[in-house]
Design a protein around this nucleic acid. Structure first.
Length: 480
DNA sequence: ATGTTC
């Protein structure tokens, strides 16, 4: 019998795979899905989540978000918490793109100013913001500069003139995770990362000029300083080749650690090491270094885009009204405190294609948002809506303080390209303004290749994980 | 995601 047939719907939007469904499964797995999203849930994604539930030191449950799809070892959309003393850390359960994440910047511009000139504006952004696989930026870093980026994160970029000190107060973990140790990062990673800082990358990464298009919670939107028709910038990118290489390097370390520490796992892609071991600590230190590189990357990308818009309209920074709303990680493992059976425990929370969504009054929510809850930024795919939500209390009870991260793929890349060949790119994109150096990525990333992101956010909103505040619509998109 | 099958 397939695992999907063994899922039990325990309440609306909640499907449970009981513990011990597969051999060695220590905790249950919960899937948060609408009826429609349940229909397209892949058997392999269920298998991957169940496999993770067998890992040493896994606590309470594995949670899977509505934008789930099959990943490397652990599904995208998966959340796993392990005990830092007895449990493991798993590079595959963070993912190849360490601290892939999203940043939202508000401006004073309105849609009626931008809409008529959006094509020209996007072409300016295309000129100034490097994008695409293997793209390199204007910034070339020495190894010692790279080490500084790995420790300081977004602060390094601000010190170089890419942004403002107050930006740092509006970034998850202040834009610099502690526990970064640049000496645990390989020479290869430094080489790959040295000329990629301030570049968008490829795949579903983008820089988008958006407009606030619909507001669901007037009060919270107002307190965030966002109103209908307001133009924003959204950046979706990660740690580029630097983080990729860190993942590659430590998957090898993890495979060797399995023998050394006698860890038995159902899938080699879940290779892992005890968190409290030299190997586990080295990966954690290198992963945090890559995460800090990603914070610096989005800091630079957001600033370059804002500066391009500012110059395009001939405005001062003050008149542009640049204001960082928030920046967060989608792919990361963090040491956090969570309550299980009334006891507060320190846990290693792996989020892979999943967003932290801490509720109001959580001490880790920046003071500016302490009473509202942490902003949760959910990018859509090309041309589709993006959403802003705020974290709610229930997230701490049912998902280790975690929400979804985006739409999730529906069509494979090759299917999407075939679809574009058959229909023609112009027809597929319609009115959307999409600029890119090459058209290959655009064909792979058409809206039709993704699940409907609004369906995904409705699930986390309905469950009380995060509350819908507003929707953003793209005016123009820069792709890799 | 990724010097896109290093």
């Amino acid at each position: 019998m397939g695992l999907k047939e063994q899922l039990v719907q325990v309440q609306p939007f909640v499907y449970k795979l009981p513990e011990n469904t597969i051999q060695g499964q220590k905790v249950p797995v919960y899937f948060y899905l609408s009826d429609r999203l349940f229909e397209i849930l892949e058997e392999d994604a269920i298998r991957q989540a169940a496999n993770a539930a067998t890992l040493p030191g896994v606590k309470k449950a594995i949670y899977v978000m509505p934008d789930v799809h099959v990943g490397y070892g652990f599904p995208v959309g998966g959340v796993m918490a392990t005990d830092p003393e007895e449990g493991i850390i798993s590079p595959g359960s963070v993912g190849y793109d360490i601290n892939c994440g999203v940043r939202l910047i508000a401006t004073n511009l309105t849609a009626d100013m931008v809409y008529p000139v959006r094509r020209e504006l996007m072409n300016e952004i295309l000129k100034n913001v490097p994008a695409g696989v293997g793209s390199t930026g204007k910034i070339k870093l020495t190894k010692s500069q790279m080490e500084e980026v790995a420790v300081k994160g977004a602060r390094w970029a601000v010190e170089q003139g890419f942004g403002f000190l107050e930006d740092l107060e509006h970034i998850e973990s202040g834009g610099a995770l502690p526990n970064a140790d640049p000496s645990k990062v390989s020479k290869e990673a430094y080489e790959r990362g040295s000329d990629e800082l301030g570049t968008v990358g490829s795949g579903n990464h983008f820089v988008e000029v958006q407009v606030v298009d619909e507001i669901y919670d007037e009060d919270i939107a107002e307190r965030l300083g966002l109103k209908l028709g307001q133009v924003c910038i959204m950046v979706h990118s990660g740690s580029r080749g630097f983080g990729h290489q860190v993942c590659v390097d430590y998957l090898k370390v993890a495979k060797d650690a399995l023998k050394k520490y006698n860890i038995d796992i159902p899938d080699m892609q879940l290779a892992c090491m005890p968190f409290n071991s030299p190997e586990g600590q080295a990966y954690f230190s290198a992963m945090n270094s890559a995460a800090n590189y990603a914070f610096a990357n989005r800091q630079i990308l957001g600033f370059l885009t804002a500066d391009t818009i500012r110059r395009f309209f001939g405005l001062s920074w003050k008149d542009l009204g640049y204001r960082l709303i928030y920046d967060l990680a989608h792919n990361i493992a963090k040491l956090e405190k969570h309550k299980i059976d009334g006891k507060v425990l320190k846990l290693v929370v792996h989020r892979k294609g999943a967003t932290r969504a801490f509720p109001p009054f959580n001490p880790e929510v920046p003071p500016a948002y302490r009473e509202l809850g942490q902003p949760v930024l959910i990018p859509g795919d090309v041309g589709r809506y993006s959403f802003l939500l705020v974290g709610q209390d229930r997230s701490m009870e049912i998902s280790f303080g975690t929400a979804c991260h985006g739409a999730g793929r529906l069509m494979s890349r090759s299917k999407a390209k075939e679809f574009v060949r058959r229909e023609g790119l112009e027809k597929v994109l319609g009115d959307l303004v999409v600029v890119a150096r090459g058209k290959g990525t655009v064909a792979e990333e058409i809206p039709q290749a993704y699940k409907d992101v609004s369906e995904v956010v409705r699930v986390v909103d309905s469950l009380g994980i995060a509350k819908l505040v507003l929707r953003l619509k793209p005016l123009g998109t820069l792709k890799g």
